[in-house]
Every structure is written in C-alpha cells, then in structure tokens.
Amino acid sequence: MSTANQSWAKRNRMTITPLLFLLPGILFFVAYVVFPIFQSFNISLYEWDGLGEATYIGAGNYQELLTDRNFEISLWNNVKWLVLYLLAIPAGLLIALLLNQTVPGIRLYKSLFFFPFVISQVVVGLVFSWFYLPRVGLLNALLTSLGLESINVLGDPTLATYGIIAAGLWPQTAYCMILYLTGLNAVDPEQVEAGRLDGAKGVKMLWYVILPQLRPATFIAFVVTIIGALRSFDLISIMTNGGPFGSTRVLSFYMFEKALSEYGFRMGYGSAIAVVLFFIMLFFIAYFLWSMYRDEREARR
C-alpha cells in the first residue's frame, strides 16, 4: 500500500511539486481576495451598519445607486480619470525618448525625472495643493504676473477633478517614462539601421520601427495606468477630501465615505458601490488577461 502511494507521488511529482509551491499563495489569495469579493456581493444585498443586525433588502442598495446623484458624479469622475490618466503614456514616451541619449550627466536627469514616482502620493498631493493655493500658490502667482485672473482650482467644482488628475499625472508620467527607458534599451539597433537605410526618419521611424518594438512596455504602461486611475484615492483624500461639495469623489472614495468614514457605516451601500467598481475593473482585467494569454500562445507557436 505504502509503496503504491510512494510510487504514485513519485510518478506525479512533476505535477505535485508546482502545486505544492503554489498552495500557500493560492490559500492566501482565496482567503484575502476571492472570499472577500463574494462577501461584498453578499453584504451589498443587506442594510447593515456594521454593528447591529443586517436586514436583507435585495437589490435595494442598487436601486438607490441609480437615483444617487453623488454616485453618478463619482462614476463620471472615474471616467475622466481613466481617459485623462492615459496621457501619462505618451508623455512618458516623449520624456523617455528625450532622455535616451548618451550625454554626460544623463543619469542625474533620469533620476530627477523619476523622482516624483519615488515620493509618496500624499506628498505629491500636498505639493500640488500648495501649488494651487488661491492667493499665495505658485500657479496663481504665475497667472497674476501674466496679467490673468487668478483661479481657485481645487475650490471650483468644474476644475477640481482636473486639478487632481494633473497632480496624479506627475508621478504616473515618471513611471511610464521608466518603463519606456528600459524598453528603449532593448530596441534592436540593426532594425533602426535598416529603417534608416530605407529612408525612415522622425515620426515615421518612431511609428513603424521603434513603437512596435516597445509593445511590451506599452502594454505594461497601459495596465499600470488604468489600475492607477481606478485606485486614485490618496490624492483626492489629501487634496480636496472629495469636495467641494462632493464634486471630486470617485467610486473608491465614495465607497470609503459611505462604509468606513466618520459619517458612514452603511456597509451594504458601500459594498454595492464596491461591486460596481469591481465590475469596471473586471472588464479591464479580463482584457489584460486575455491579451497576455493570446501573446503567450503566439510566442509558443
């Protein structure tokens, strides 16, 4: 009996070993990621303050979401973030192309450009909110010296979200830049040479020769930027705290406010928002996974 077992384990060890190595990771992933997702689904069907009895209200929370103007504002702000945050990719590429040269001291310039990504988002938020300050901020000093009207970026409900996105673009551009810089190192000089012989120059060279070789870097930049946009929480919390009058909230911030902040503790409603956010993320994540799977299959062929 025991020998049979041993031989079974021996025969299958090529399968068992990786599974065993994966097991701790999978256990943690199930306990801390998969299980809470289903738990959120469940809580979103209840009205619960986190302390007392939870009452089942079916789709009640979702019905309320449909008529909740703050939810609508948050959703639109998420869309703004998603679209405008992508600007970090071309901007990062541009800076990477600029810095991809061999001049003395280029390492210093590279590190300076990378600097905003290293410092904490909280610091970025503080720096930008000082920059935007209504009377003494640098931005308004600049505007008034040019003879323009001063503006209160973070106090104006139509501008505030864009002001925060601009702050977010600063570190995100640096991140994309570093991805492209490493990508540019891997560009095949022979292909560039060949392109040059065929008369490709400037934009054409970039578009047809360089960019296709940067595809992996672009893909990763796209992934981290989309995820960064959906996770935009700390900047909002630091710079406006969701205000003025809730005009800069995004879904993640609204969820936090409703479920966990000082005046919140509507766990069911917060979970319903989280579920919506989850499906938005799932859409992108599914696309990323699918395209990675496709690339890998092509590579294997």
Binding site: G155, G243, P244, F245, G246, E262, Y263, G264, F265, R266
Partner: peptide
C-alpha cells in the same frame, strides 16, 4: 444622525459658495 450630517454639511458648504 451621521448620514444626515454629512449630506447636510455638504449642502451647507455648497450654499455658502
């Protein structure tokens, strides 16, 4: 109540602006 307070104060701030 907490929720009324948070929605209320947001409205008050909007009114002041």
């Amino acid at each position: 109540p907490a929720e009324m307070a948070s929605i209320g104060m947001e409205g008050l701030q909007e009114f002041m602006v």
